[in-house]
């Protein structure tokens, strides 16, 4: 029962993280605020020095030309120039920022591509075994000729026979109110039990796959995943077990895992179905 111990450790780590993360967030944000303010201050300094230098040069120019103007005029001029300069400076800063963002994007794009291409192939399924079997060719389905269907005795109850059954029944006067709970003795009635029993005897991957399919249809994805995995363990060249396993994973919200598994399977098998499924998962169609 060391499992609970393990769980307790996990819980402890979770708690520590939970308590620490707001602290980290606060310190990080305060750092950001202080840093941002500092940058703002230094930029303002630069701006001021820029403006003052241009202002002094323009006054110098007017004095060199010797053109006498009244004070008001020159002050107006200066203010206009200041505005233009401010605009220029603003534009420059903006352009720089745009450049930066573009650069960042450029840097990011190849990273994403790389990630997809080099997606770590760590499937949950036993891969060593998979590799060994991957080379072995899959058996081709045996073609059944239509002409060889054996004649079978007709064992349907015809309408006539049914009518006879009915008449005999009438004579017995079945009480309509009488009810009867169905007794299931056939193999189809308690499907899951029978199938699981059958599987426990046969250990056949087909049976496991069948169960996985039915569970998947029933929207019991945990069970579906389990049985698809069972099937895959017994025979991992069964394409459907891979697909179903991945599909169940997606339904259980484990999209990334599903993609990893499918990509690795696709690399080995070049299966069109796997490829299609990858596309469907990526576009959220499943």
């Amino acid at each position: 029962m060391h499992k609970v111990k393990e769980l307790e450790n996990k819980w402890f780590n979770y708690k520590v993280k939970k308590i620490l993360s707001p602290l980290i967030a606060i310190s990080a944000s305060s750092l950001l605020v202080v840093g941002g303010y500092y940058i703002y201050l230094s930029q303002e300094d630069k701006l001021h020095s820029l403006i003052s230098s241009t202002v002094s040069s323009s006054t110098r120019a007017t004095s060199v030309l010797g053109v006498s103007r009244d004070a008001n005029n020159s002050i107006n001029n200066l203010q206009k120039k200041e505005k233009v300069i401010e605009k220029i400076v603003d534009k420059k800063v903006l352009e720089e920022k745009i450049e930066e963002v573009k650069l960042e994007k450029k840097l990011e794009e190849p990273k994403i591509l790389e990630k997809i291409a080099l997606a770590p192939i760590i499937p949950v399924i036993d891969m060593a075994k998979e590799e060994r079997i991957a080379d072995v060719k899959r058996p081709r389905p045996v073609k059944v000729s239509r002409n060889t269907v054996a004649a079978k005795k007709n064992d349907y109850l015809t309408a006539k026979e049914l009518a006879v059954v009915r008449r005999t029944q009438k004579r017995e006067k079945v009480v309509p109110r009488k009810t009867k709970k169905m007794k299931f003795t056939s193999s189809d009635s308690n499907y899951f039990e029978t199938m699981q029993h059958k599987f426990s005897k046969s250990n056949s991957p087909r049976d496991a796959l069948l169960l996985a399919k039915v569970y998947y249809k029933k929207a019991e994805y945990v069970e579906a995943e389990k049985w698809a995995l069972s099937a895959n363990k017994l025979n991992n060249s069964l394409e459907e077990s891979w697909l179903l396993f991945a599909k169940s994973k997606v339904k259980l919200g484990k999209k990334k895992e599903a993609l990893k598994i499918l990509v690795s399977y696709y690399k080995k098998s070049q299966s069109i179905k796997a490829k299609r499924l990858i596309g469907q998962i990526k576009t959220g169609k499943i």
Binding site: D155, Y156, L157, T158, A159, E161, L162, A163, V165, R166, Q169, V174, K178, K180, M182, S189
Partner: peptide
């Protein structure tokens, strides 16, 4: 099972219920 439920009869293992027959019934 449907027919057995309606009729209260048990159909022998080797017999089948024909759907059209069931509809008429």
């Amino acid at each position: 099972s449907i027919y057995e439920g309606m009729s209260g009869q048990v159909i022998p293992e080797r017999m089948r219920v024909n759907f059209d027959g069931l509809l008429k019934y």
